[in-house]
Design a protein around this nucleic acid. Structure first.
Lengths: 110, 110
DNA sequence: ATCAAATATACAAATATTCATATATTTGAG
DNA sequence: CTCAAATATATGAATATTTGTATATTTGAT
């Protein structure tokens, strides 16, 4: 229906489009983490973490390493950290714009 | 349920997670375009373009300018172009990795 | 005032995602 | 071998997104 490449890119962004998956990825920027680590850091149940990790895995956004019964996850591409950082800048701009707009609405007497 | 900021970021990435919306954004990197321009360039019907533009608008990813009966769309933040470019690099890495993997599968005789 | 062009919105069926709950699988320790 | 810890998967109901079709709105020209 669409070009495969665009479909592929859309899948990638869709994979980033979930709050818990974003928090997981932010954790992984700092270095690899086991499922238990993530579970503890995020305060969510094991199944939820595994479910979301599975999605990131199938989209090739994260990679794994097994050690005993633990599975350690890490970002597949360091550029992803840059991408998330760049996204943060965009959000900041956006928030600043929104603030400025609200400010103007509040102070304009027309 | 989740932190508002993470929810907000997720909304942003979700907005990018659609093939047609990605193609639209790629067009807009080159400069502002009217709905008709986009419709012609992408070969899709008017309604679909407007629908997807509406989503990009509500997520504050694009801005508009009216001129007569035409509405011109442009990226709200130039950083978005950088983000899409960075994403492209990540996809390329991924595709190269996948190719290398297939190559190895094909040439290994174990 | 009327018309046509350009754009936006409404609606609903099809499809996909989310998320909680339950169950499986894998691995190392004893 | 048995058990417990760690992780993964299955299932399904609730919710959200997609997408085609129809209709509405806005604007400039005549």
């Amino acid at each position: 229906m669409y070009q495969p490449l665009h479909q592929f890119k859309a899948e990638f962004f869709k994979a980033l489009g979930h709050p818990l998956r974003l928090v997981i990825l932010e954790q992984l920027i700092a270095g690899e983490k086991s499922v238990t680590d993530l579970q503890a850091a995020l305060g969510v149940d094991q199944s939820s973490v595994s479910q979301q990790l599975a999605i990131l895995r199938t989209r090739n956004i994260v990679e794994t390493r097994k050690d005993g019964t633990s599975v350690f996850y890490r970002l597949r591409d360091p550029l992803l950290a840059e991408l998330l950082e760049l996204a943060r800048s965009i959000f900041n701009n956006h928030l600043i714009d929104t603030q400025a707009m609200l400010q103007q609405l509040a102070t304009t007497d027309t």
